[in-house]
Write a protein that binds this DNA or RNA. Structure first.
Length: 280
DNA sequence: AAACAGGCCTAAA
DNA sequence: TTTAGGCCTGTT
């Protein structure tokens, strides 16, 4: 009998500050699922939680300990996104993107989970990425109980380092299996120190990640932005390429958006993906 | 049925 | 330094 975790309902933020739908469905994370009418349940850092909207507030069901140790930081609640995004409004298009994406928060995800998830993401769409990640967790993630259901933690690098690529056949990740195992071994052996890279400059972190087989510029940028907390990272995928070409025809340098360029990237990306970019 | 996907790798100019 | 083709699996 597992011990029951005492969950409480804790206010996270206003809905203006944190929009769960945008935040969980903008493509940055893969383990939050809508259970119905705006209720999301997810797992991160080996803890499960449920996020709900009520009135103009967003609340989380979690233990107070988990809130302090995990969720407060995870949702980046001490950062003023609205204030920061003022400097992104360099054009009508950017203003529209900022307004459209208002409420998105860059989740401060687990380092290894972010790296591994974005290795999986290459040449895949979100439903398939989520499917592969769930099967990976089912294969070797630790079980946890939360509000009457069983969930699985994301497997640590050490658990995957022991496996061979062929062992990942059940998760159907295709040619990415080799990349996953290889990266897990690099992390597990200490050859790739993600904590160190989270605390070094972004260039150092990028160079280290790019040395991994199966990690190119796009995946590395996502890993440093979503997993290592380097908010100036600016991942450019096919959607971003299209949007930037159309709205910054003279060329584009992410550094114009400063230390939080990654947030600007999410606004542009989310806006482009929802098809609103042709309006301006 | 064949092409293409929220890249990356290798080989070859 | 840029480009083409292949890669697992899944969907259209």
């Amino acid at each position: 009998m597992l011990e029951t975790i005492q969950t409480e309902r804790i206010r996270l933020a206003s809905r203006a500050e944190l929009d769960p739908v945008k935040t969980f469905d903008c493509g940055q994370c893969f383990r939050w699922n809508m259970d119905g009418d705006g209720v999301y349940t997810g797992v991160a850092f080996g803890r499960a939680a449920r996020v709900v909207c009520e009135g103009d507030g967003v609340y989380i069901f979690a233990s107070p300990e988990d809130y302090e140790q995990v969720w407060r930081d995870y949702f980046d609640l001490d950062t003023d996104y609205a204030g920061i995004s003022e400097q992104f409004r360099v054009s009508d298009y950017m203003s529209a993107a900022c307004d459209f994406g208002a409420g998105i928060r860059i989740l401060r995800q687990e380092r290894w989970e972010a790296l591994c998830s974005f290795i999986i993401s290459q040449c895949n769409n979100i439903p398939r990425i989520k499917g592969i990640v769930e099967r990976l967790c089912a294969l070797c993630g630790e079980e946890l109980e939360f509000m009457g259901s069983t969930y699985r933690a994301f497997p640590p690098a050490s658990a995957l380092a022991r496996l061979e690529p062929a062992d990942l056949a059940p998760i159907r990740s295709g040619y990415r299996a080799e990349y996953i195992i290889n990266a897990a071994r690099a992390v597990d052996s200490g050859e790739l120190d993600l904590e160190y890279l989270a605390n070094s400059d972004i260039g150092t972190a990028m160079d280290a990640l790019l040395s991994l087989k199966g990690v190119g510029r796009k995946v590395a940028n996502c890993a440093v932005l979503f997993g290592l907390g380097h908010m100036e990272a600016f991942p450019i995928d096919v959607w971003m390429k299209r949007a930037l070409k159309e709205h910054f025809p003279a060329g584009f340098d992410p550094s114009v958006f400063g230390d939080y360029a990654g947030l600007a990237q999410q606004y542009i990306f989310y806006y482009a993906r929802s098809g609103g970019e042709s309006d301006v």
